[in-house]
């Protein structure tokens, strides 16, 4: 099977600042991958390139073999760092919006999660707390039957109990043919659900390895390894 995400010598510069330096990365279908790195290491830039919100300065990025386009966005479900929906929308309207926009939106799955997490159908996003906004955005993102999920900091602003529920939501909703890329620095919270870890540092990939291999070879968790590698 072909790679769902592939980067070839992918480079992105903002003015004189190089955010990604000629990275090569291949992700196979059916994996949950952690994109890990300190602030400013290029995680968000990589995700934005994958969904076509940014264009590469040099090199290429391919979704299922194609450069990002409307066609690839139909199989990519993206969770932005901050909520990207109009603030006047209610939970109900946001679900309608996603249903209109994406053919792969599973309304029943979204409604089930909305009721389970206790979101109000008539509440506007404007009046929601930061955590509730994150929950709504994640519900919408994971309710699509996509091939590639790009989750930029999905658990940053929610409490530990909700964090567990969100991780279980990811496990329950992704299919065996789809890949989930999760960017985060809350490694100990996510590492049990990961197949692979990618360490980014200053725009370069330092490590791309299976989580079990890291534990087997180094005798330590991904979190411990990260703290060691990125010690200040």
């Amino acid at each position: 099977m072909s790679n769902i995400l592939e980067c070839k010598a992918l480079t992105k510069r903002y003015g004189g600042k190089e955010a990604l330096s000629a990275i090569d990365l291949s992700l196979e279908p059916g994996r949950i991958v952690g994109l890990l790195g300190p602030n400013g290491s290029g995680k968000t830039t990589l995700i934005k390139l994958a969904c076509g919100l940014l264009t590469p300065t040099a090199g290429g990025i391919y979704i299922n073999g194609e450069a990002p386009s409307k066609a690839t966005n139909a199989i990519v479900s993206y969770l932005p760092e901050r909520i990207a929906l109009p603030l006047w929308m209610t939970t109900q309207q946001a679900m309608d919006f996603y249903g209109d926009f994406y053919a792969d939106f599973r309304r029943d799955a979204a409604e089930d999660m909305v009721s389970r997490l206790g979101l109000e159908l008539r509440q506007t996003i404007k009046t929601m707390s930061k955590g509730t906004r994150e929950k709504l955005q994640l519900i919408l993102t994971m309710s699509r039957a996509a091939r590639l999920y790009l989750l930029d900091e999905p658990i940053g602003g929610v409490d530990p109990a909700t964090r567990d529920y969100i991780l279980k939501t990811i496990l329950t909703n992704y299919s065996e043919e789809s890949t989930v890329l999760i960017s985060t620095h809350l490694i100990s919270d996510v590492e049990h659900v990961l197949d692979e870890a990618v360490f980014l540092r200053e725009g370069s990939i330092m490590l791309h390895e299976s989580v079990d291999t890291i534990r087997e070879e180094k005798g330590k968790s991904v979190d411990e390894l990260f703290r060691e590698v990125f010690a200040c």
Partner: peptide
């Protein structure tokens, strides 16, 4: 597999293994 994975909060491929 999926049920065990969700219950334990771990990756399904890990359960498979």
């Amino acid at each position: 597999v999926r049920e065990l994975a969700v219950d334990a909060g771990v990756n399904p491929n890990t359960v498979q293994r």
